[in-house]
Computed example of a mutant assay.
Amino acid sequence: MLQASADIDTSETLTERQKAVLDAALRLLVEEGDNLTMTAVARRASCSKETLYKWFGDRDGLLTATVQWQASKVRVVPVDGESLDIASLTASLEGFAADWLKVISSDTSIALNRVAVGHAGSFKRKPGKDDLGAIVLENGRFALARRLKPVLLAGKQAGLLDFTDAETAFRSFFGLVARDVQIRLLLGDRLELTEAAIGGDAVRATQQFLALFGAKTGRRATDL
């Protein structure tokens, strides 16, 4: 059975066949919303239900792996705490920001988040049904925080960042990157998020974050 941890880069633990199955599950979520079944995924992915149960355990495990696979597309460039400088820290933060904007603006993520929000807000969830909202939250936003915080803490240890709480610093960076983009997309706004626009937004968010949390004794990105 595939046991993919939220703190592990799922793309490193999946086979190409498993990735194809999870892509099929994502497409079904876009098309059918919460009415996702193991039978439907097996049919769409041209595999047996036995294979799905072997890899993912059950529907809950399949949904978790699907969200992890989508979240793994937001890469966190590792940094060396001992030799970390402002240039490498900036590059890591900009890369994370750009990847995250690309992922949340995709049709797949928009549909997945709409289903998750609707599922979380349902007061009449059927007994025994998994909580897709909780799965998306734990394996999306919370998992990304666990992956990026070591970079922020390395920046603090290197004297480049100054903050008292890593969670607060992460939330500030997340907010600078997202702004109102995600909520507008979820509500149907057709934003033009081109590669150039995403790259510019990633740079802007990183510079604003460094202006807020850059150590006064360290070199800022704008000093390079």
Rank of each mutant, 00 (worst) to 15 (best):
R125A: 11
G61W: 09
P127L: 11
F142L: 10
P150T: 08
T51M: 15
K102N: 12
R171Q: 11
R44G: 03
R204I: 08
A169Y: 06
I8F: 03
P78K: 03
S122Y: 09
L93S: 01
F170I: 02
T108C: 02
T39P: 02
G140S: 08
I110Y: 00
R75A: 15
G175V: 08
L187K: 10
Y53S: 14
A65P: 02
D131K: 02
K129F: 08
Q207M: 14
I86W: 04
D180Y: 00
F56N: 04
L93N: 03
K126P: 07
V136M: 12
A42K: 02
D130E: 14
D23T: 10
V151R: 01
Q208R: 13
D60L: 04
R219W: 10
Q207P: 00
V136A: 13
V136G: 02
V103C: 01
A215H: 13
L22W: 04
V115R: 08
E192M: 11
D23W: 05
G118A: 10
R171L: 11
N113K: 14
T206H: 05
L22A: 01
G159A: 08
I86K: 02
S48I: 10
K216M: 13
A45C: 10
A215D: 12
G175M: 06
L22E: 00
L36N: 05
R219C: 10
D107Q: 08
K54M: 12
F174M: 05
L62K: 02
G133N: 00
V74I: 15
V77K: 12
D60Y: 03
G118W: 00
F209D: 01
A145K: 12
T15I: 10
E167A: 09
V77S: 13
E94G: 00
S122Q: 08
Q18V: 06
E12H: 15
A20S: 15
A145P: 00
G57Y: 03
V41H: 03
L112N: 07
L176Q: 11
S46R: 14
A98M: 07
L191P: 06
D201N: 11
F209S: 07
D223C: 06
A221D: 13
L63N: 05
G199P: 04
A40E: 07
D131C: 07
L144R: 11
S72V: 03
G128H: 04
V74C: 04
N113P: 00
E192C: 06
T51Y: 13
L224I: 14
L148A: 08
V115M: 15
G199K: 07
R171C: 07
K54Y: 13
I86M: 14
A221W: 14
L152H: 07
K19E: 14
L193P: 06
E50D: 15
R59H: 09
F173I: 04
V203S: 12
S5I: 03
F123S: 11
L224R: 13
T64W: 00
L152C: 10
D130F: 11
F96Q: 06
L132E: 05
N35S: 15
T64R: 12
A197E: 14
T37N: 07
G57D: 06
V177D: 01
R184T: 09
E12K: 14
F163Y: 13
A196F: 10
Q18K: 02
I198A: 03
V151K: 05
E192G: 06
A143N: 06
D9C: 11
I86G: 03
L176K: 08
R190F: 02
G218L: 06
